[in-house]
């Protein structure tokens, strides 16, 4: 364990350095998201992830946001354990009828102002599960959605880009849900 820790310390940050455009895109994202988040949301945005019926591939990629390569907390974004602590609901899956009520309740438990991000193709239009008797519909048919992030599953970089888009939306339309 000591060697592991020592090795990790000596190696420095694991965030992938240069070669890909994706890397500078990450840095650019870090700056853009950082400034906007500070301006509007006091540096921090808390995300509650809700799986409303996904195949769990989206969850794997959302998990990857926490790894040292994407390190989402650099941007002041962090995942929280309760909707009570959340600013954002990040919802995946076609909403199954069996999860519909749980999603509605989670939304109701999230304090205003709040934003909803629907991640993945299923969350947008039910994907390959469209037309099933067991699916209530896309996320937007159950709760109001502010942003869709496409992909099956969306790659971590797309999720990050999407969350930046959310900050934009939050700047110009911040109190929409609060006013309801």
């Amino acid at each position: 364990m000591h060697m592991l820790l020592l090795n990790a310390l000596l190696k420095g940050p694991a965030v992938k350095p240069a070669p890909e455009p994706a890397s500078w895109a990450l840095e650019e994202l870090a700056r853009a998201l950082g400034e906007r988040a500070r301006r509007k949301l006091g540096r921090s945005l808390s995300i509650r992830e809700v799986d409303a019926g996904s195949c769990n591939a989206c969850e794997l990629e959302i998990h990857a946001l926490n790894n040292p390569v994407y390190d989402i907390e650099r941007f002041g974004l962090k995942f929280v354990a309760s909707p009570r602590h959340a600013d954002v609901l990040l919802v995946t899956g076609p909403v199954t009828w069996n999860m519909r009520e749980a999603l509605e309740r989670t939304y109701a438990a999230t304090p205003d102002p709040k934003w909803v991000v629907a991640a993945g193709d299923c969350a947008r239009d039910c994907g390959v599960f469209a037309g099933s008797y067991a699916c209530a519909g896309p996320v937007s048919s159950v709760i109001p959605v502010d942003l869709h992030i496409p992909g099956c599953p969306p790659q971590p970089m797309d999720l990050l880009k999407g969350l930046m888009g959310l900050i934009d939306a939050a700047c110009c339309d911040g109190k929409r849900h609060a006013a309801r």
């Binding site: 599960f129 008797y133 067991a134 699916c135």
Partner: peptide, 11 residues
């Protein structure tokens, strides 16, 4: 369990 049921067989 069953919350994730998406009706795979019927689809």
């Amino acid at each position: 369990l069953g919350y994730q049921h998406k009706g795979v067989e019927a689809l």
